[in-house]
Write a protein that binds this DNA or RNA. Structure first.
Lengths: 208, 208
DNA sequence: GTCTATACTACGATAGAC
DNA sequence: GTCTATCGTAGTATAGAC
């Protein structure tokens, strides 16, 4: 590719539009305008609106994958052997994810993904395969060490609940602020939420 | 109103379109077609696309409000006095909500709400005020009885986590199925998820 | 490889018949 | 109160100049 940055600029603008508005409501005109290129360049580089959408899905997998990469690598390089270590690893993975859910950057990514979750298309498949599956299976493996006496299916359900505790910080953002009686979720409130989440998760990860 | 059912038919079709596609992508033409009326009837009854959108928000508040009504009434009629009773009430409220999240009807409602949560408009305000706020504050009050020694702010954060554990069953539906290695979430899988959720919630609601 | 120009379809709103 | 007809705008895709 002679101008790799141009494709990236289009994808960035497209991700913003697709995330905020969804596939149908997003307009290639606006995306072209926002990225400062002609509309026909989208056709040239991505074959059309659909192709651009899939390129956005790949981009999401890369970006959110990078969020988890350092921790995932550390866990793989030095796999936990004791329940205590596994619990600490799972907590770190969850806190890392929750921190991303609280960050502004996760907004468009999450809206994109939540939409895809309801009726998954090829776009979801790519995101799941390249980003979600590795993280979720790592979490499941950590829980197998942390909670050896529990049924595998129970552990998988627990992974889902833990993910939910983090994901609500993004998808229920307006409710979170109102329930805590704050105008918006500032850094201080975010730290409090993370600490509280950590406490609850620790409770759930401690074998009775 | 001489034909109250016609407005309802339009709202039903609109909710489906707005929920699935969002405000911009939904088309009043399609809504009119789906409900079997002329497009101009929407203008007549709701003043335009925006008015119809707000009518859908009110409808959501009514429908999801009705889901919680029986339990809310029972709790108000006979307020729990012991931590055990309060815990049971909170668990019942959560399970009721989670069951709705697993039901197909919640799909469009939730998509509508999640979109509104990111950048709340008048529509979110109506849903929050008439439906969410009463339920969330009831839950908070129950937790105040169940966990008297904990800080009020901690209890509110816990309410958020509990909601997250239920809400992920809807917004993360595709992931839930994949993590549990099932093709779709049938009645049996749903029961298992609810039982597992109940167990985790009980753990979190038991004072250490 | 990027542009301009254009073909074709669909959008929301409104006017006016009945 | 519901319809049909129409206006002005904006959507995607494509053809062809450079």
């Amino acid at each position: 590719m002679t101008t790799p940055e141009l494709s990236q600029r289009i994808i960035a603008a497209a991700l913003d539009q697709f995330g905020r508005l969804g596939f149908d409501a997003a307009s290639t005109r606006d995306i072209a305008r926002a990225s400062g290129v002609a509309m026909s360049s989208i056709t040239y580089h991505f074959g059309g609106k659909q192709g651009l959408y899939l390129a956005c899905a790949d981009q999401i997998a890369v970006v959110i994958g990078a969020v988890h990469r350092p921790l995932m690598d550390a866990i793989e390089a030095d796999p936990p052997r004791t329940p205590q270590d596994a619990r600490a690893g799972a907590l770190a993975l969850l806190e890392n994810f929750a921190r991303f859910m609280l960050a502004p950057e996760s907004e468009i990514h999450c809206q994109f993904i939540v939409r895809e979750q309801q009726h998954p298309t090829e776009a979801f498949e790519r995101i799941y395969e390249h980003m979600m599956s590795p993280v979720l299976e790592t979490a499941t493996a950590l829980l197998a060490i942390a909670l050896p006496h529990r049924d595998e299916r129970e552990r998988r359900a627990l992974v889902i609940s833990l993910v939910g505790m983090a994901i609500v910080l993004r998808v229920g953002r307006a409710c979170v602020a109102r329930v805590l009686r704050v105008d918006d979720i500032d850094a201080q409130t975010a730290d409090f939420l993370l600490a509280s989440l950590r406490r609850s998760a620790l409770t759930l990860l401690t074998e009775d």
